[in-house]
Design a protein around this nucleic acid. Structure first.
Lengths: 188, 188
DNA sequence: ATACTGAGGCTAACAACGTTAGCTACCCGA
DNA sequence: TCGGGTAGCTAACGTTGTTAGCCTCAGTAT
């Protein structure tokens, strides 16, 4: 029985205007994609000019960093609720299913959070590990957990980019991955 | 016994100056990364001004497209030579090993070729399939092949972005993936 | 009351990016 | 000799993130 109830690390809360900025950034990002998320556009949306944003954040990267944290926390949350209480053997498929659904639900946010290097120095300590822990809980062994995580990330990335040959049945691809890893999880 | 000897699709050759441009683009890309590959920089390197590049290519994307084709062909080549003559069961690990080595050998080129949507309309017909075919040859079934390819792509992407926790033993991660998929390859 | 100080907005501007328009020199075939 | 294409150039446009410097207003200390 998997106990996935460990609480997420606490982020220090943002003051009012900063929180508005991040919320707006997320809306723009999700609604119109990464290209639409510019400082000027963000300013427009908030009724201010782009340079004023720098009174609240050091730059665009700092705003995006908060969104990355949100994405990591929500992913961790989703994965946990998908596997909590299950036996490890039967948890692989729900884990992968939840990963895919969460990513496809917020595609641009997922890309933002997973593309390019993670700015670990700015991140709230522990969020990265906390978000990835479900893979370890299910697979029982770090390298296998990383392999499964990588496969999930690879499949999502390729799907989001429309990289699979047109007409591919992705459900079956995910099933193939799940059953390949499923047989090997938690071997002692 | 895998017969991986099918010939690559032929690209129509580039005229002299165009070939120089692409070659230079590749050098700059690999030596200094994607950010360094700008039209002005490319012009400098070739002793001309950025707008003159438009006499040879429609734009930056057109130059990159040729590089993408090169990357796909070289990947297909590497994968083929890694698995040719092997029995399918024992080919999974060499396949993955070759994938990783090729990608890490030309990291920026790999990223260029795999990031974002594939501009299929501009691509020489057949290169995409040809590059991916080794996965099908080894795994025997399309969805399993796609799963393995996805896992390889995911692991490479995360490695290139420094996304694995510091100190991770990636060799073991790849081995874990190989053995998970190895047991299931070519089941009828 | 007066002065100071910080927060939070503004405009103007910079450098770099991809790209376009328009001009010019050259070579080659009719 | 006369076009016409090829391949270069400069100037410029519209974006992008970002910085510098100014202004206004609230709150507080003197």
């Amino acid at each position: 029985m998997i106990d996935a109830s460990s609480p997420p690390p606490e982020r220090e809360p943002l003051s009012g205007r900063a929180a508005e900025i991040v919320a707006t950034a997320r809306v723009v990002l999700e609604a119109e994609g990464a290209d639409a998320l510019t400082m000027r556009r963000l300013g427009d949306e908030l009724g201010m000019k782009a340079p004023s944003l720098y009174k609240h954040f050091d730059g665009k990267a700092a705003i995006e960093l908060v969104l990355v944290e949100e994405a990591l926390l929500e992913m961790g949350e989703a994965l946990r609720s998908a596997i909590d209480g299950l036996r490890t053997v039967e948890a692989v498929e729900p884990l992968l299913r939840a990963y895919r659904r969460t990513a496809l639900d917020h595609p641009s946010l997922y890309r933002l959070a997973t593309l390019g290097p993670l700015p670990r120095e700015g991140l709230t300590p522990g969020v990265e590990d906390w978000a990835g822990e479900p893979f370890l809980l299910v697979m029982g062994e770090p390298h296998l957990a990383q392999a499964v995580w990588s496969a999930a990330h690879g499949m999502v990335s390729l799907e989001l980019d429309g990289r699979y040959p047109p007409g591919s049945d992705l459900d079956r691809t995910w099933t193939a991955a799940a059953s390949a890893f499923g047989r090997n999880g938690n071997v002692r």
